[in-house]
């Protein structure tokens, strides 16, 4: 069942087109990430959904109701802000009970519900503290508790983990995902971190220059990117010139074939190449060995290639050595158009 429908939403700032006729349907209980580089329009889209910004055209429909002209306080959703936006003059408990109070709950009732929400994020003991005296991770949890306490149908998260350090971020990714499953709330999660989006989302909407380039499950996005932009932005991509059928290499680059580094192998002799594989002659320009993974960077004609494999490289693959880069045509994905 569709919970949120975005129809033809556009938004311009003077001459800059931030959103260009964007449409998107989000299902009940789904975890969707809006992924893209800064300036791609993902935050603008979130702000239009939240009601902090009005679109120039198009409609936002939540649960069958057109909310396009409603102010933020009248929309059945809540937001976790990028810088948390905790009220500095209130305690943690006051921050979290703010929502229930506005919804008409008595002070006592609001505090009970706030306690439940704080319990869920593991901060019940911090209730009387001031948010100013807390760490970034704790503030993040308070912001989360404050946003879920009213049990919204839809939760918007604007790069909520970007200010945390790597380890904490990884842990919060798992916790957020668990919380989402447990509460059954639909999440719309804005991020510029592809790993984060890959790890958490049911579907990812990759955005660029105010448009959604592709919306699909993480694996599909990775294996079958629709555009060059998506291929480059998600993971790393070798672009290989292919014939349209995807079976053989092309001389006059007719179609771009996307080949992930883990699917590209390096051979010292042409005879070792498995049957049916395609190959390109290349020269090794650099190699690294990091965390159990070897990376080989090569140049083939005017194109650079990148191969990744597990384990240590054979000693004879060094900078300047002529090798053969080979791959199974089944692993290549041809970009449309």
């Amino acid at each position: 069942m569709t919970l949120l429908a975005i129809q033809d939403v556009s938004k311009s700032f003077s001459s800059h087109r931030a959103l260009d006729r964007v449409s998107l349907d989000v299902m009940q209980g789904e975890f969707i990430s809006l992924l893209g580089p800064s300036g791609c329009g993902k935050t603008t889209l979130l702000r239009v959904i939240g009601g902090f910004m009005s679109a120039d055209g198009g409609r936002v429909i939540i649960d069958g109701q057109d909310v396009s002209s409603l102010p933020p306080e009248r929309r059945p959703l809540n937001t976790v802000f990028q810088n948390y936006a905790l009220f500095p003059h209130m305690t943690v408990l006051e921050n979290v009970s703010y929502g229930p109070r506005r919804a008409g709950a008595s002070r006592k009732e609001a505090e009970v519900r706030a306690h439940e929400a704080l319990e869920m994020v593991g901060l019940a003991a911090m209730a009387p503290r001031s948010p100013r005296a807390m760490s970034g991770g704790q503030q993040q949890r308070v912001a989360l508790a404050r946003a879920i306490v009213n049990k919204p149908k839809l939760l918007l998260l604007d790069e909520p983990l970007s200010a945390l350090d790597l380890q904490l971020r990884k842990r919060m990714q798992i916790e957020l995902k668990q919380l989402q499953v447990q509460l059954g709330i639909t999440f719309i999660f804005v991020t510029h971190d592809q790993d984060e989006a890959m790890a958490m989302s049911d579907r990812i909407a990759v955005m660029s220059a105010g448009r959604i380039e592709q919306i699909d499950e993480p694996e599909t996005i990775y294996r079958r990117p629709k555009t060059r932009f998506v291929a480059d932005f998600i993971g790393e991509a070798n672009i290989v010139p292919m014939q349209k059928d995807g079976r053989s290499l092309a001389r006059d680059a007719a179609f771009d074939g996307v080949l992930r580094p883990e699917n590209l192998r390096v051979f010292t002799r042409a005879e070792s190449l498995p049957d049916g594989w395609l190959s390109l002659p290349a020269t090794v320009s650099a190699s690294t060995y990091v965390g159990g993974t070897s990376n080989i960077y090569m140049v083939s004609g005017d194109r650079s290639l990148h191969a990744r494999s597990y384990g240590v490289l054979p000693g004879d693959i060094r900078e300047g050595v002529e090798i053969i880069a080979g791959f199974d045509p089944a692993d290549i994905h041809i970009l449309e158009g």
Partner: peptide, 10 residues
């Protein structure tokens, strides 16, 4: 952004 948060919370 705090004001936005407040509006967001109703």
């Amino acid at each position: 952004s705090q004001e936005e948060a407040s509006r967001d919370l109703g």
